[in-house]
Amino acid sequence: MIARITGRLFASGRGLALPESSAPGEVLAQASELVVRLGGREVLAGVSVAARAGEVLALVGPNGAGKSTLLAALAADLAADEGDVRICGRAAAQWPARELALRRAVLPQAAALSFPFPVEDVVRMGRAPWAGTALEDDDDRAVREAMDATEVTEFAGRPFSALSGGERARVALARVLAQRAPLLLLDEPTAALDLRHQELVLRVCRDRAAAGDAVVVVLHDLGLAAAYADRVAVLRGGALAAEGAPGDVFTGELLSEVYRQPVEVFPHPRTGAPLVTPVRG
């Protein structure tokens, strides 16, 4: 009894159900007929998507289409008004915060920090859910690998507040990677990044998917989505306009209509991957 109380006090990880490894293709997060209302407005009007292990799913669409809301619902940040969200086979609302943190990691759109922690400490915060579990010993390794993957090792000792926007975004991503959750939800991870680091981040997404994780990423750059995503979900006005492999979904007609802007899609002369550009001039 006393041991249980002290265990709870010190947030011991013993007794926590650790995530099991998932087979490729297994659904790790699923929204079914999801309706979310914010401030009286229906932001999501019956959306169904699934994030599968081993896949990168890109959420694309114009501003205000509900991409971030959908991501927040998959992260169990927002409750479903109708329909439901399941994460690793259980209703999102039923997961205790700590056990959910072992299963899904979330990169928010803006990386903020109220106190000037050094970069390495920020990345290490991603290991917090594992404290007291058998996998706590991996902490140093997970932190180092995450920092190497996002190329932030060189400023490990600098305070977070002294970094540029792009550097902060990469540090935030490193923290999310260090969490080593099988479900990765990334909200515009490339927004503040230069060309090289945009590619780097999406390669990291691919690597994680190859390692068996489910990756859901909100993107504005359709070219990146076409090049790196296994599947794309195109959102428009809170509903799903199309879903499938980028090669099937990205057509001039659909994108022109969804974005209300003439768009052409043509194959890359060398690789054949779809290239998306607005019609200009």
Partner: peptide
Amino acid sequence: DLLALGERPARHLGVD
């Protein structure tokens, strides 16, 4: 320490 990241990120890291 985790709360310094903001409320939502702290929740994502398992803090009630």
